[in-house]
């Protein structure tokens, strides 16, 4: 059946409508998970709050396992799904920059908007900085262009690189994620014991 639009189940004109609905749902879940608080978000780096890790790992394993089942029961054809092309070194560098910004600013791009939505000033300034950064990067793009497009591996997946079937990765990631849930729970307890006050 799926993917819905490429297979013509619903018309191509619906993509923006679907995007808005998904965006609303995404924002709701971010806010409901407490992601509009930069203390919550940065907590993962200081060890007193791992809600970020839990939410994202949960989303990841549920989506991954769910898609495999959907593929099996015929609701979604996984071979037709768009896979983002991989640029190895630029992605590593980008990830590092993003992580540093995350620790410094206390938000990642998506959560800064949920922060604005509930009226947080720090989120507002984070977003202004975000746009300044985008603007600056666009102007300086010719400088980075060679690096930006280097190491193109195409639309590859882990299965294609390793030759292992997808369920192996699903199980491996699930085990790692569940172990992380339990592990971080104890780290959290220990770190919080030493904190004089903890509020959000």
């Amino acid at each position: 059946m799926g993917p819905l639009i490429p297979n013509g189940v619903i018309g191509g004109g619906w993509d923006f409508v679907i995007a808005i609905l998904l965006g609303v749902a995404f924002g709701f879940v971010l806010e409901a998970s407490g992601f509009s608080s930069s203390r919550n978000l940065a907590g993962v780096f200081y060890g007193y709050n791992f809600v970020v890790l839990r939410v994202f790992f949960t989303a990841l394993i549920v989506a991954m396992v769910g898609l495999l089942y959907f593929d099996y029961v015929g609701w979604l054809n996984l071979s037709q799904i768009f896979i983002l092309p991989t640029f190895l070194t630029p992605m590593i560098v980008g990830g590092v920059i993003m992580g540093v910004g995350f620790v410094l600013g206390g938000f990642c791009p998506g959560t800064s908007f949920t922060g604005i939505a509930i009226g947080k000033l720090d989120a507002l300034f984070f977003t202004i900085g975000l746009y300044l950064g985008i603007f600056g990067f666009s102007l300086a793009y010719p400088l980075f262009e060679d690096f930006f497009t280097s190491g193109d591996m195409g639309n590859v997946t882990l299965m294609e690189i390793t030759g292992l079937p997808a369920p192996y990765f699903a199980v491996a990631f699930t085990v790692v994620a569940l172990a992380a849930f339990w592990g971080t729970m104890f780290v959290e307890k220990r770190v919080r014991k030493n904190m004089k006050q903890y509020k959000f």
Partner: peptide
């Protein structure tokens, strides 16, 4: 979750 993952 483990059961579901192994089920795949």
């Amino acid at each position: 979750m483990l059961v579901l993952a192994v089920g795949t």
